[in-house]
Design a protein around this nucleic acid. Structure first.
Length: 577
RNA sequence: CGGGUAUUGGCGCAGCUUGGUAGCGCGCUCGGCUUGGGACCGAGAGGGCGCAGGUUCGAAUCCUGCAUACCCGACCA
């Protein structure tokens, strides 16, 4: 490959685009890899397309190595299959739907579980056809409420989705493990530093689930790690350890007048000022905060739910919604309609709606909490004695320093990452929905179980840019760079010709070459553009050409070395391998 | 979907308070000069100010409504 910048469709931007915030978005725009074409939709320019294709190639190679077979479905699909599995309504507003000229409903697929299950139903009939691993690289559509960060969250994006079909749990587990390894290899080859975290499987349904998160400050996913062990999990998946040991028996419940104390802060201040219960060392953690939410079920029914968490914690709506999925929750605020719920003074004793408590509110623990009357609170309210929650719930926020649920000795740390891959064992949700059965060895029908494995390919390009750049521009890993070498003809006097000649030699040897042969562009501009574009290795054909020398530069560490021009092709060909 | 900010040539911005028919830098075109770190000189092309109404002799500037984008939050792979 030999690309000449004199004819390349490329325009680098000297100034920062006003509406790009995150580094990957800014740099990909400035370096001329992408252009915004629609809200949440980007055009791949020649340099960007080269990177995207190289990333896709890595993914394809590893999928094939893991035994995957590539297929490709339409992105435009009819309603029926998604109606059958319930996702037409469950996915709700996030699906792009449209009607054809006859008024029939269609959708632009957000993922393709239905189609893969139907394809397997169509083309298999015997246990001999299994196991099966299929994948595709396809444009997906989601009507994101808020596209952001350029390629990080678009409404149209490139995704690799793979699906395994097995007839036994052991087979599924094996396929899952194989894909997990393939993913690690892929992200390693892409130069993406990542962490595998336990996750919840979201709208797709399913059980065992792990996310691959690329470490990045701009990442939308918060996850936790442990200071002592290798535990890592999405905050939604963090399980709160119940306090160890039974607390001492508390005295009887006592109700106190606590006027004007509708918040935890005001309550603690009041309690200490008046030595409530003889104590002056009350903290927010001694109080029990009860938050009322409205739970919206997909069917359309609403239900009130009260959630009890220690007063020093907030209810984390992300965690709560993960627990309640597919139902969703919003904060309840229409207290006028419910006189039994006294805002600011709610207590779990005798509450008339469903009540679920944080695991820290374990049986035997005593709390300072609302007395369900305006201006009154109660002390020594003991879980299991004065009230019994309907259930526990993981809704309290997770904080750095919380004890690790895995080893118990370490403390949790909080980090941010970009979700670049998600794997999970789907089970039979989709094969059940379509009654996908094949004949087993014993002559009886067997129903395949599915695994689902996704990689955001276009998002991965952004993630790579996030992890590989400096103040001057992008620095692509060699595995995905738009070219292996960037040859800069610094000036005149035959330098352009020499650069093109070197480029041609390298291209014949199978090296991907970008030559800056632009006439009437100063060397300074060319150097700056080369650093912005970020090809890891460059050759400057310039002032020492007359002596037969050129300069080899390393974009990452900035080192330069002068080499005889006649040796350069050999050196580079060897390095590129 | 809630809150905030913004919308003026390809990009980045000024002008709006105090209405008089649009300007700067970069980029682009042509000529000259220059050629190892985002040159210089000269001559040009290109917008009627997000959209729709309204006020006014006159609106980028004032009023009303709408749209879009970005940021924060909600939601989400």
């Amino acid at each position: 490959m030999l690309l000449r910048m004199s004819t390349l469709l490329l325009k680098t931007l000297r100034e920062e685009p006003a509406d790009a915030e995150v580094p990957s978005h800014r740099l990909l725009l400035r370096a001329g890899f992408i252009r915004r074409a629609a809200p949440g939709g980007y055009t791949w320019l020649p340099l960007g397309k080269l990177v995207l294709d190289r990333v896709t190639d890595v993914v394809r190679e590893e999928m094939a190595a893991a035994g995957g077979q590539e297929v490709s479905f339409p992105a435009l699909l009819p309603r029926e299959p998604y109606e059958t599995t319930g996702r037409w309504t469950e996915y709700g507003d996030d699906i792009f739907t449209l009607q054809d000229r006859r008024g029939a409903d269609h959708l632009l697929a957000p993922t393709h579980e239905e189609m893969f299950a139907l394809l397997v139903q169509d083309l298999t009939s015997s246990y001999r056809d299994f196991p099966l691993l299929l994948f595709q690289v396809q444009t997906k559509f989601r009507d994101e409420a808020r596209p952001r960060g350029g390629l990080l969250r678009g409404r149209e994006f490139l995704m690799k989705d793979a699906y395994s079909f097995d007839l036994s749990e052991a087979g599924l587990t094996e396929a899952y493990g194989r894909m997990r390894l393939a993913y690690q290899r892929i992200f390693e080859r892409l130069g993406l530093t990542h962490t595998i975290v336990s996750a919840v499987s979201g709208a797709m349904g399913g059980s065992a689930s792990e996310e691959f998160l690329a470490a990045a400050e701009v990442g939308e996913d918060t996850f936790v790690g442990c200071t002592a062990c290798d535990y890592a999990a999405n905050t939604e998946a963090v399980v709160t350890p119940a306090p160890a040991g039974l607390p001492a028996a508390a005295p009887d419940l006592e109700v106190h007048d606590t006027p004007d104390t509708p918040t935890i802060a005001s309550l603690v201040e009041f309690a200490n000022a008046r030595a409530l219960g003889g104590r002056t060392d009350w903290t927010a953690a001694d109080t029990l905060k009860n938050v009322v939410v409205t739970v919206h079920h997909p069917g359309g029914k609403d239900e009130l739910l009260a959630i009890g968490v220690p007063g020093d914690r907030e209810v984390d709506l992300k965690r709560l919604n993960a627990v309640l999925a597919p139902a969703t929750a919003t904060l309840f605020d229409d207290f006028e309609s419910r006189p039994d719920l006294v805002k600011g003074y709610i207590g779990p004793q005798g509450i008339k709606i469903r009540y679920r408590a944080d695991p820290r509110v374990a049986p035997g623990t005593a709390w300072l909490t609302g007395a369900n009357e305006p201006g009154r609170h109660a002390t020594n309210v003991v879980a299991g004695r004065d009230f019994t929650p309907d259930d526990t719930i993981e809704a309290a926020d997770v904080r750095a320093g919380d004890p690790c649920p895995s080893c118990g000795s370490g403390a949790l740390t909080i980090r941010r990452g970009i979700e670049i891959g998600h794997i999970f064992q789907l089970g039979r949700r989709y094969t059940d929905a379509f009654a996908v059965d094949v004949l087993g060895a014993d002559g009886k029908p067997v129903r395949p179980t599915m695994g689902c494995y996704g990689i955001g390919v276009s998002r991965a390009v952004a993630a790579i840019a996030e992890q590989h750049h400096d103040e001057r521009g992008l620095i692509w890993p060699a595995s995905v760079a738009p070219a292996d070498v960037h040859i800069v003809a610094a000036g005149r006097d035959g330098q352009v010709e020499a650069a093109l000649q070197l480029g041609a030699t390298l291209a014949r040897a199978g090296v991907r070459v970008l030559v800056d042969d632009r006439p009437n562009v100063s060397a300074g501009v060319k150097f700056t553009d080369a650093e912005l574009i970020g090809i890891p290795r460059s050759v400057v054909v310039g002032r020492r050409l007359a002596e037969g020398y050129a300069e080899l530069r390393d974009r990452r560490d900035g080192t330069r070395q002068e080499l005889p021009l006649v040796d350069i092709a050999g050196v580079i060909t060897t390095e590129v391998g």
